[in-house]
């Protein structure tokens, strides 16, 4: 039997966050029903190299004929579970706005320019110790309609599966010192200030590539079983 701890209150945001206006008609009103952790919750889909697109780990040069505009950065970190075990050979999916704060998406009507050489979609695999890395450009902040003069802080969206259906995580990586963070209802929707700070990447001088790219480190911790599968599997 695998044992997963419940996520402590305040660590994940509450869907009922009125300051985030899109939640008003979408956040369930009934409390979630706690269910046992059956095989359905403690096993989960695994995606590895077979899911990887070519050139997905360098978002600065995915379009032939040019390179993406903006500050080139290396984003890297380690994916592990809450007990420190690496999430090895696992798929990391990312997407983001371009350097001007514009998404290559039909519904993004912000009048900032599109960059013909930036798709905004990336992927990479973690290595045997859970480390991942990809190149991209620093995304721009952008306005949105949540409230008067609302701007999203610069961020990169991340999607990970982890060891189980219950460890699925979609999140956003932010940048250190972004003055927009305390005004963002999505970031501030996380009640626990220490948990919030775990979404802010660290500038990483040691991994900065001279003459080429700045570097940011973003470690990701997923839910994991309290015991390793082979200890108790009958």
């Amino acid at each position: 039997m695998f044992r997963y701890r419940r996520v402590p209150a305040g660590v994940y945001p509450d869907n009922d966050t009125p300051a985030y206006r899109s939640s008003e008609k979408r956040a369930p009103r009934e409390p979630p029903v706690a269910i046992p952790h059956t095989l359905s919750e403690t096993l989960g889909p695994r995606f590895g190299a077979e899911a990887l697109r070519a050139d997905a780990n360098d978002m600065t040069c995915q379009v032939p004929g040019g390179i993406a505009q903006g500050q080139r950065i290396l984003v890297h970190g380690r994916v592990s579970d809450e007990f420190g075990r690496p999430e090895a050979h696992a798929l990391v999916e990312v997407w983001q706005a371009n350097a001007a704060g514009r998404y290559r998406h039909v519904n993004d009507d912000h009048d900032a320019p599109l960059d013909p050489y930036f798709t905004g979609a990336g992927q990479c695999l973690t290595d045997a110790d859970g480390h991942y890395a990809f190149y991209t450009i620093e995304p721009g902040a952008y306005p949105w309609g949540n409230h008067a003069n609302a701007w999203r802080p610069r961020h990169i969206h991340f999607s990970l599966f982890g060891p189980a259906w219950g460890s699925r995580l979609v999140t956003q990586m932010y940048f250190p010192g972004d003055p927009l963070l305390p005004f963002d209802p999505i970031f501030m929707g996380i009640a626990d200030a220490q948990a919030r700070e775990r979404l802010v990447s660290c500038f990483d001088l040691a991994r900065t590539e001279p003459g080429r790219a700045l570097a940011y480190r973003f470690d990701i911790v997923l839910r994991g079983p309290a015991e390793t599968p082979w200890e108790n599997r009958s």
Partner: peptide, 21 residues
Amino acid sequence: MSVLTPSQTVGPYFHIGLDWP
């Protein structure tokens, strides 16, 4: 103390990164 990375919304533009054929 929990060390978990918190969740955030997938947002309106997830198709860019997550829409697989």
